[in-house]
Write a protein that binds this DNA or RNA. Structure first.
Lengths: 249, 249
DNA sequence: TTTTCAAAGTGTATATTTTACACTAAGTTT
DNA sequence: AAACTTAGTGTAAAATATACACTTTGAAAA
């Protein structure tokens, strides 16, 4: 359901943008929306942007990020974590972006500072549905992301660095996988995100030793080879303060 | 020199706040300013705040942080790093803070999102000088910081976590020390900031093995015991991407 | 000048962790 | 039944982390 607030409830100085990462078993994906330019411009690659919009004047930042994500993509109830604020004076200065701002913003020339948010999801748990100014919503392969609108490539670069750091120090890989998964999916995920070729046996030993995984009695089905045992993630307290001692790889 | 821009150049929705950490050889310090309440309130502990203020409409965020720091404390030319955005709806809602906002802000009731910045300095390199709305500027012992104005305790907590993480993974301890320093000062610094009692010999071996320190032919002077050899920090490339491999302790 | 004090400076043995490395097992398809 | 594909498993060597205490040196006090 879209919000039906009015223009004068908008904070014209502050927006939020969301980087939602997903993993399909092979590559890392990012959720992008294609702006509806209503024929004011040819559709080109650069009309892809991160889901985001201005906040309301009485709206918490994180609530705004959730609301915008829901309004544009249909994704609800996501745990979002802040990346940081992006406020360059020229972040809205590209010609194509100006065309779009003129079209949809009450004060298109307003200087806007955006707060970036970031989430990890299991793609299969979410069905995306374009709405609002989003003509299409897609899971774009991270390595094939071209030039995005505004400063969104910059925000995305900041997000991937954060993701990599998190992967090393916190048990977050599981968030990108289904509840039950074979260890090799986790292994592929690490290699993909970290651009590495970790030693498989050493990886499996170490990831099991963390104590965050529990083997189940379920096995893969429908695969044309020996089915692997499925594991699940064990929720247990994670002392963020001891980050440095905890190398997940 | 203070900026002489006018009220209508102010962005009433966005401010910056700076957490400047220093180290005096014994304890970690934070730069705080005491607001000048001009007798509208008794002076109490809670009138201490982080140096910060609204940004100008055409001002880069980091430039704003530098400018505000200079205007309030006289500290110039500091490398500032962003902590994040703080935007709770009630962050300006304390009674004492409202009194102050009424006194100094053109639109005191405006909802303001602040961007936190963070810096590490060698206290001795900077002379502080209160100006602007700062009645006093002090280096407060980190462990003795009481209730600050606004959400500044929250910003400070976020900053100390960032500092601890940086200390583990990046060569930043040196920024808090003079150019030439004895190894025990570095050792004390780590123990102080990390609340730990590291093994001294192991610490010295490890910190030297990083290759970021170079011994000099200078020694401490004026100490009532055997003077220690002074070391200096060697600038060399630090691959932020390899953070996880680099444990400084 | 001798003694005392305070911090500087230094090494080793043991435990733990990391790394490199390759074959057999099991289920599916042909 | 053979071929294919991924699952699943152990060990030895190297590197790193840890625990631990005495001697040296200069300044200050007696």
């Amino acid at each position: 359901m879209e919000s039906n607030r009015k223009t004068n409830n908008i904070n014209h100085s502050v927006s939020v943008d969301c980087v939602v990462f997903g993993f399909d078993g092979f590559s890392l994906k990012v959720l992008l929306v294609q702006r509806d330019l209503r024929d004011n411009l040819d559709n080109g690659d650069d009309t892809l942007v991160l889901p985001g919009d201005l906040i309301y004047i009485d709206e918490d930042l994180e609530d705004a990020a959730s609301r915008v994500l829901l309004d544009l993509t249909g994704i609800d109830n996501l745990f979002l974590e802040q990346i940081g604020a992006f406020g360059s004076l020229n972040r809205l200065a590209k010609d194509r972006d100006k065309v779009w701002l003129d079209l949809v913003r009450p004060i298109p020339e307003s200087r806007v500072i955006t707060i970036g948010y970031f989430a990890l999801v299991n793609i299969k748990n979410y069905t995306i549905r374009p709405a609002g100014f989003a003509k299409h919503v897609i899971w774009e392969d991270f390595n094939e992301v071209g030039e995005l609108g505004f400063d969104h490539n910059h925000i995305l670069r900041t997000a991937i660095i954060k993701l990599r750091n998190k992967l090393y120090h916190e048990p977050v890989g599981f968030k990108l996988l289904p509840k039950y998964f074979p260890l090799n999916h986790l292994y592929t995920l690490y290699n993909t995100i970290l651009n590495s070729k970790l030693d498989r046996r050493n990886f499996l030993r170490r990831i099991l030793k963390t104590g965050f995984l529990k083997e189940t009695d379920n096995f893969q089905e429908g695969v044309p080879h020996k089915p692997a045992r499925l594991y699940k993630f064990i929720e247990k307290e994670f002392e963020n303060d001891n980050n440095h001692k905890f190398k997940f790889y």
